[in-house]
Amino acid sequence: MAGIATVPAESPAAPETRRSGSPAGRGWSRNTVETRVLGVLRWLVIAGLVLFTLFPFYYMVLLSLRDLSSLLQAPARLWPALSELTVDTYRDVLAPTDSGGQGFLRFMATSGVVALGTVAVTLVFAVLGSYALARLRFPGRRRIGVLFLAVYLFPSILLAVPLFVFFTRVGLRGALPALVLVYVSQTVAVAIYMLRNYFQTVPASIEEAAAVDGADRFTIMRRITLPLAMPAILSNALFVFMIAWNEFLFALLFLVDDRSRWTVSLGLSQLAGSIEIPTTVLMAGSVILTVPIVVLFFATERLLTGGLTAGAEKG
């Protein structure tokens, strides 16, 4: 009762004092409160975000280095004891199956071949195509732009059924080159889009000067345009490599029947359900799958972030 009684007594006074202050003064006090609160909140948010994003990666590395039995005894311990640290998990996961391992070294070789093949083919297609789109006038150019945008937006699950049926029917479903071609068809549109934007920032006058000096178009491309576009081509290559290395659905559809052709992603996903393989060993497998991407990413972050917004994902 006492509390309620004080409210009407005080409430007329409070607006009174506020009203007596100048509008600027009132704004200043709210401003100070907000600035201080947001100033603290900002650091809390940053700390929370870093924890939220990085914790799964930390946990991945942590579990890959811990001994399985000690993990089961103390699952919540977030720092490893020195005595339980082990790299046997990595040896187990990398060793070939006939010596008791999981054969991830072989998976890595397959992933590497597929990803590098995709990069090479995509770059050849994309450099030629983006140069044409940026520099040359030809009928249908606009329509091709629309076609590529549609490809970029179309998700891979819609292509899964017809491509699976087609490659099964022609008997090429387990073939790595078939998978590489599918990856190229998925990445080439974005690669062309990114490279075309870059070519458009390079002044055409340099090439025209060379043309005046008598160079033909392919000499110009080889000697002038390509060297100038090298940074963009390199970031494109890394970007395509990441997509091909990470890809899961088509690897699953095309390669799952034959363990000797599994990629790292496919291998990890197929072995993840198994009861016989210790979680810590598979965690070492996920570290092996993730590390190349993280290293590439931090080495080239500046080059890549522009490209990521230009379009990165096939859902």
């Binding site: 946990y59 990890l268 996920s286 990165a312």
Partner: peptide, 27 residues
Amino acid sequence: SLLLPYVAPVVAATFVWGVMLNPQFGV
């Protein structure tokens, strides 16, 4: 660092989340 989840392989990310959220020994 904040961009890492977006570039990390989806299979590794889902696997580690699955283990993190595991009812038996997930952290």
